[in-house]
Design a protein around this nucleic acid. Structure first.
Lengths: 214, 214
DNA sequence: TAGATTGTTAATCGATTAACAATC
DNA sequence: TAGATTGTTAATCGATTAACAATC
């Protein structure tokens, strides 16, 4: 967590996002009510945790029926800030950056990627979906003009801290950090890490450990 | 965590991966010793946590100097299973799958992506770096032939559970799940989630919450 | 009505932090 | 030597689970 900006504990917020994803699937399937028990089974939790988590929301369930999926989706959306469209820019037009720029689910959930930047002048000008890669010198202007909220760091680990500073300087309020580095940000800026390589290493540990046991 | 396969608590394992990343940077910079205090500052932790974490490893520091970076890197590598090369396949040759297939840092850390698959016959045959997209029917044979350890799920949320089952059936021991869905796996299979969209939603919550306070 | 399910309080469990003797 | 830093134990803090009265 970058900053203690909210009052709901971080582990709960992370599960709220999972509930939202799952509820959206249920609604698409026409399910109108869901119990804490059913939700728990689908997501690998206990019903106690689910009820505890949902008690942070402005919603109440009904005995014998559970929670109305339509209401639950609305309330989760609102609490997670998903009722507005967040503007984001990506820095780093490598494979990962370009993939995220055109990642359909982001747009569907209200994250509008409105720019992609790279320090390497040789990739500037390249088309990425409906965007064109811009040089870092154009970053501040775009962030200001489009009132960009979020910067997505998809640069090599060596560049991460410096690019983070450029993004903060340009005025973004939050960073999604995909570079495998811990970045320091000033008070008031939020950072969430998405370190896929570290996830792989966690998996490596689990495999290694389970293998040793045999 | 998919399975309680190891004896080191999950939060500690996750930090060990971070230590490893950071130590590799220090070594590249020629740093030979590092104290728990310095490590803590670099990674946003307390020195107490660092010492507690490192006590799970087969290493000891020296008063007034700290830990030798060379030894620490070795021991972390070994504990995280990074002293062997793990074979992995990707399922889903969309933007994200293709980006991961050619992601340089994975290879550098000993994760060998040796196949990429897709259910859509129109993308089968497409070149992705040094690989060629194969159809799902070829999955079991490759997993067996190459003794693949890890399956990487980069498919749309609707397909995730089914593809996970195909991977497990084919014989992988662990899954890295990039699809925004909770997947159920049999006992003995490890799953680590890398849900970027959920990370973005956590960020959305933080921004939303910090904005409300003003 | 009887049984299922919520909402909430209390109990347990686990993770982080503080403290400090040992030691370089 | 004096001061810095480890390794470890105990204290604190927070998250999860259990339990159960209220209620539909």
């Amino acid at each position: 967590m970058g900053q203690k900006a909210g009052s709901i504990p971080t582990p709960v917020v992370r599960r709220l996002a999972k509930y939202l994803m799952h509820i959206q699937g249920l609604r698409k399937a026409g399910v109108e009510w869901v119990s804490s028990q059913t939700l728990a089974e689908a997501l690998g939790l206990t019903s106690s945790t689910v009820r505890q988590d949902l008690s942070h929301l402005d919603i109440s369930g009904i005995s014998k029926r559970g929670y109305e999926t339509a209401t639950l989706e609305d309330v989760l959306q609102r609490e997670l800030g998903g009722d507005v469209v967040w503007k984001a820019v990506i820095v780093g037009a490598g494979n990962l950056g370009c993939a995220l720029a055109t990642h359909v689910p982001f747009a569907k959930q209200g994250f509008d990627i409105c720019g992609i930047f790279d320090a390497n002048t040789r990739v500037v000008g390249k088309k990425v979906g409906r965007l064109t890669v811009q040089g870092m010198e154009d970053l501040p202007a775009l962030v200001r003009k489009e009132a960009v909220d979020i910067g997505i760091l998809a640069v090599p680990v060596e560049a991460a801290q410096q690019v983070a500073e450029q993004l903060v300087e340009a005025g973004v309020a939050g960073l999604l950090n995909l570079a495998c580095a811990h970045i320091q940000v000033p008070e008031g800026v939020s950072v969430v890490d998405a370190h896929i390589l570290e996830n792989l290493q966690e998996l490596s540990y689990l495999l290694h450990a389970s293998r040793k046991k045999k």
